[in-house]
């Protein structure tokens, strides 16, 4: 048994936690000493109180945002993987379509969200489409890169054994692409949440949404700043949890062999 302080996991959890507690304390004390009014900049305790008071409505909003995020993330994973598979089938397909994937990536979602929200009647669906567009690119580019990054020695071994295209894909390309794919998942999960919130903002200004972004907008109109911060807090927590889940998933899948997931003992 190692002493608690030297344990890797303990330090990784405790150190950022300690920083957070100190920051919160400074924030709280600073606000109190400077007697900054709540409508300008609320104290952590105000935000916490608001979180409790508006609990049910915030939670409902969170669930809506979360649903859109997860739907978009799932759609991005499925679509992105399929597109990546298509890309590696032939250089011609990739060369002719990849620029459009980049186009998708560089177009700001706030610019096209209004268009999508008008075109797609169902609000839920239109928001999901927006978030999917934001989350799609990392999956495409990472998975394509992974499927292409085959160890040349192994590739010639497969060729020497006259392995079929399908067998080479299943036994060589897909396993080799997993580390890249999981890297894509991490980035994409956060982007799906950002995409969902941004799309909600755009839709919310038209009064057609009810997610966390709408809560923030609504609280802003009513100058209920603590509620605004409470909603923001929920978005942040959701993002962190999503990221954590992806890290855990990738650990679970790669822990045995990939350098990125090897523990300290390796």
């Amino acid at each position: 048994m190692k002493p608690l302080l030297q344990s890797e996991t303990f330090v990784r959890i405790a150190a950022p936690l300690a920083v957070g507690v100190v920051l919160l304390a400074v924030w709280e004390i600073g606000c109190r000493l400077g007697s900054i009014p709540v409508y300008l900049f609320p104290k952590p305790s105000d935000i916490f109180a608001s979180l409790i008071k508006n609990g049910p409505s915030l939670l409902r909003a969170l669930l809506i945002t979360l649903r859109i995020t997860l739907q978009a993330f799932a759609a991005a994973v499925v679509l992105g993987t399929l597109i990546a598979f298509m890309f590696v089938q032939s250089r011609a397909i990739e060369v002719s379509l990849f620029p459009y994937a980049v186009l998708l990536q560089v177009t700001p979602i706030v610019a096209i969200a209004p268009l999508i929200i008008i075109l797609v009647k169902n609000t839920q669906l239109s928001l999901t489409v927006c978030a999917t567009l934001v989350a799609l690119f990392p999956i495409i580019s990472n998975t394509t890169l992974g499927l292409r990054s085959v160890d040349p020695g192994l590739a010639s071994y497969f060729r020497m054994n006259r392995a079929s295209r399908l067998k080479t894909l299943v036994r060589l390309r897909i396993p080799g692409a997993l580390p890249y794919f999981f890297g894509g998942l991490r980035i994409s999960s956060g982007l799906a949440l950002i995409g969902a919130v941004v799309a909600e903002f755009v839709a919310g200004t038209g009064g057609r949404s009810s997610g966390l972004a709408y809560e923030i907008l609504d609280a802003g109109f009513q100058l209920d700043i603590p509620r605004m911060f409470a909603a923001l807090f929920l978005i942040t927590v959701t993002g962190v949890l999503l990221f954590g889940a992806m890290v855990g998933l990738s650990k679970l899948a790669l822990s045995n062999w990939h350098e990125s997931e090897l523990g300290a003992e390796a």
Partner: peptide, 11 residues
């Protein structure tokens, strides 16, 4: 055929 490198599947 045995290559100069082990060329094993790491996974």
């Amino acid at each position: 055929f045995v290559f100069q490198e082990p060329t094993l599947m790491p996974w």
